[in-house]
Lab assay of single mutants.
Amino acid sequence: CHSECLGNCSQPDDPTKCVACRNFYLDGRCVETCPPPYYHFQDWRCVNFSFCQDLHHKCKNSRRQGCHQYVIHNNKCIPECPSGYTMNSSNLLCTPCLGPCPKVCHLLEGEKTIDSVTSAQELRGCTVINGSLIINIRGGNNLAAELEANLGLIEEISGYLKIRRSYALVSLSFFRKLRLIRGETLEIGNYSFYALDNQNLRQLWDWSKHNLTITQGKLFFHYNPKLCLSEIHKMEEVSGTKGRQERNDIALKTNGDQASCENELLKFSYIRTSFDKILLRWEPYWPPDFRDLLGFMLFYKEAPYQNVTEFDGQDACGSNSWTVVDIDPPLRSNDPKSQNHPGWLMRGLKPWTQYAIFVKTLVTFSDERRTYGAKSDIIYVQTDATNPSVPLDPISVSNSSSQIILKWKPPSDPNGNITHYLVFWERQAEDSELFELDYCLKGLKLPSRTWSPPFESEDSQKHNQSEYEDSAGECCSCPKTDSQILKELEESSFRKTFEDYLHNVVFVPRKT
């Protein structure tokens, strides 16, 4: 048989008469490798580009789960590009990614509803959504962080984005990388972005840091009482949809009607710091009717980097990364020049730590249904340095008659930039024990000054392991946590139920 035959053949030295091919099969003959313009397919066939392209389009058009959109890589027609490569849609070739590779997620039936953290986790790592997304989240724990972890990498949506009755959302900033909504599939009414009845939605994105392009379709905003109209108009300008909307697409009466839409800028007039305090004062603000001013709200939190936005980490279910302080308005003076500047002394802060701070007014709604208010920009203030805590785990070892090696770990709280350490030492008198000992005694162990690591005695271990207080009263049991108490109650309830079950099964009433 021919060298490319495997198993047997019907005619000697003829690659077209093989029972099976050793390498690849091409047009009725066995070959060692697939010549151009053919590609290896499933490690035994040679196919042309049209064959591989037909497989790709067949799966793409069917949208069946589990099928493969075949691509070409290293002269092979394979189910998908290997790690580190992405497909070129024009020629199906796998090309190296520039940075992290995109991950295209194809949605069944063309859309997916995100109504819980669990459903959001199914899209973790996706960068391109081939379909439409509907966000409908009523509640949950730590929602802002969970949504950002699972949806934060999405850069492109081919269909539309719909935010509907998501009472738990305060902001859409968890879509931190969303840059493009194509609108290839539109919501009824030709809408590519749809926001309806979101009672706590206050911000779409921080438009000073976020760009969003909507290729096709219109915007729809109705019944978002805490979303200011200025935020919607800003989205029109940034996304390129200005002029597409009709009169009733953006409701003037049901958007922002319960919001404090600040239209003035508060400026800080005085800032002073110490290692654990920050004193702030800002310019006074009074609405047209000074009785509408209820006070100020001061927001602050630790910020290692200057990239904080107002609604980071917030949701309507209680999660809030900001510390909020309510401040009463100052006494009002008739003389504008003698107006008191409101302020606040922030206490209990960490030394040498940068804080993000902003302040906003708290006002009631005027009778004319106009909203007044003022808010400052987010500023960054760093507390002063102070003395560091003591170095940890000092170790001293003498390696000769004239040297001592000293080692330690950095302090747990540096409280500033540590530039150097101060080492103090003092000579001590020799131990009298060394002169009084009889060095001729056998088995004498000389006193040693070398360091030995501390260890816990058996008594201390027994005390720590004991669940009861000892007789001397030195140790006591740790208080039980809520989960331990709940577990004990469940076990007790189970024992009672099981005992009742045994009584009912074992003891049967005697027939009379």
Rank of each mutant, 00 (worst) to 15 (best):
G139T: 03
I181F: 01
N307L: 12
S132K: 02
T323S: 07
N248H: 02
S239Q: 05
T215P: 02
V397P: 14
F268Q: 00
L219C: 13
P284F: 09
I188H: 11
L219Q: 02
G373N: 03
I357M: 01
E155K: 07
Q258G: 03
K409A: 12
K360R: 08
F299R: 14
I395S: 07
L279R: 11
E148Q: 12
F175I: 13
F365P: 15
S401F: 07
Y160P: 01
E283W: 03
E231C: 14
L178Q: 00
G152Q: 06
Y380T: 14
R291P: 06
V117G: 13
E184A: 07
N320L: 11
L133I: 02
F174E: 01
L265V: 13
K301A: 13
I157S: 00
S239C: 13
Y167A: 15
S338C: 04
L108G: 12
K242S: 10
R369I: 14
G125Q: 14
N320F: 11
I181S: 00
K162T: 02
N248F: 15
Q121T: 09
Q258A: 10
A120F: 05
L293I: 03
R347A: 08
I135E: 00
S401M: 05
V324L: 11
T273F: 06
C261V: 04
T371F: 04
R281M: 09
K350G: 03
K103S: 11
K218P: 11
R291Q: 15
S116R: 01
N224Q: 08
D328G: 02
E264L: 10
V238R: 13
T273H: 11
D206S: 06
Y305E: 04
E310Y: 05
L280Q: 00
W205F: 12
I404G: 00
I135R: 02
K350Y: 15
A259Q: 14
S192P: 03
L153G: 09
I327Y: 04
T323Y: 03
K177L: 05
G131V: 00
C261W: 03
F220W: 05
T309M: 02
R124Y: 01
G343E: 15
G140I: 11
D312N: 06
A144I: 03
L169N: 01
R244A: 04
E237L: 13
G373E: 08
L227V: 08
L349Y: 00
Y194R: 11
G125F: 04
A251Q: 11
L123Y: 12
L108S: 11
I157P: 00
K409E: 15
K277C: 15
D315L: 05
F221C: 15
T127G: 05
G217D: 00
C228V: 06
D384C: 05
S319I: 14
F311K: 08
F175Q: 00
K234E: 14
R347D: 13
G139Y: 04
V104Y: 06
R347Y: 11
Y194Q: 07
L298A: 01
T273D: 01
L108N: 15
G313K: 15
S192G: 11
N399I: 10
S400Y: 15
I271R: 01
F268L: 03
T254Y: 10
N320P: 04
N320H: 10
L204N: 03
K360M: 04
Q245H: 04
R124I: 14
I214W: 05
P336M: 02
D289T: 03
T386Q: 04
L280G: 00
I134F: 10
D328K: 02
N340F: 11
D367F: 05
N150Y: 13
Y372P: 11
D335L: 05
N340A: 07
T309P: 05
N130G: 04
S260T: 11
L392R: 04
A316V: 10
N307F: 09
S402M: 13
K226I: 07
L362H: 14
T127C: 05
W282T: 02
S119D: 13
F174G: 02
P411N: 01
K277W: 03
K409F: 12
P304F: 08
V128E: 01
L280N: 00
N255R: 04
Y194V: 11
V325K: 09
N340T: 14
W322C: 01
F290T: 05
N136A: 05
D289V: 04
I188S: 07
F221L: 10
Q199M: 12
A195G: 12
G139R: 11
A195I: 13
G110R: 07
K267M: 07
E246P: 13
S333G: 06
S166W: 01
I405M: 01
W322F: 10
Y160K: 13
R179S: 07
G348W: 03
P411V: 10
E236C: 13
V128H: 14
L298S: 01
S119W: 02
H106C: 04
L349P: 01
S338W: 05
L265Q: 13
S192F: 00
S321K: 15
P225R: 02
Q306T: 13
C261T: 05
L180T: 10
L201C: 03
I214P: 00
T215E: 06
A149T: 12
A356N: 01
G110F: 12
T254M: 13
G256F: 06
A145I: 05
M346H: 01
E122S: 15
Q403H: 11
L212P: 03
A374T: 06
D335R: 12
Q245G: 15
C317D: 15
P342I: 11
D115I: 02
G131Q: 01
R369M: 08
P342M: 11
Y191W: 06
K337S: 12
R291I: 11
S260W: 03
L186K: 09
N307I: 15
A195T: 05
E111S: 10
L219R: 01
Q403R: 11
G256E: 13
T353N: 02
R244Y: 08
I188Y: 13
Q403T: 04
Y167F: 15
H341G: 14
S338M: 11
E302V: 04
L279M: 10
S158P: 00
G131E: 01
G295P: 10
Y355Q: 00
K103F: 05
P288K: 06
T113C: 15
I278Q: 00
P304G: 04
N263G: 15
F299H: 11
R291E: 03
F175K: 00
T113R: 03
R369N: 14
T254W: 05
P304K: 14
L143W: 15
L266C: 03
L180H: 09
F175V: 05
N130C: 02
A120Y: 09
K234L: 04
I250K: 03
S171C: 05
A168Y: 11
L227W: 00
V117T: 03
R202L: 05
P391N: 02
R370A: 14
M235K: 00
F358M: 05
R244Q: 10
G318L: 14
I378V: 03
S333Y: 02
D367Q: 10
N334A: 07
S398T: 15
S274F: 12
E237G: 06
N142Y: 03
N334W: 06
S158V: 08
D335I: 12
V325M: 05
S166C: 11
A168M: 02
R332W: 06
L252F: 14
T361E: 08
K360P: 00
L107R: 05
T118E: 11
R370W: 11
S366H: 15
R165M: 08
N255F: 08
P330M: 05
Q382D: 04
P351A: 09
K375A: 06
I154G: 00
K409Q: 07
V325I: 15
N263R: 12
S389N: 08
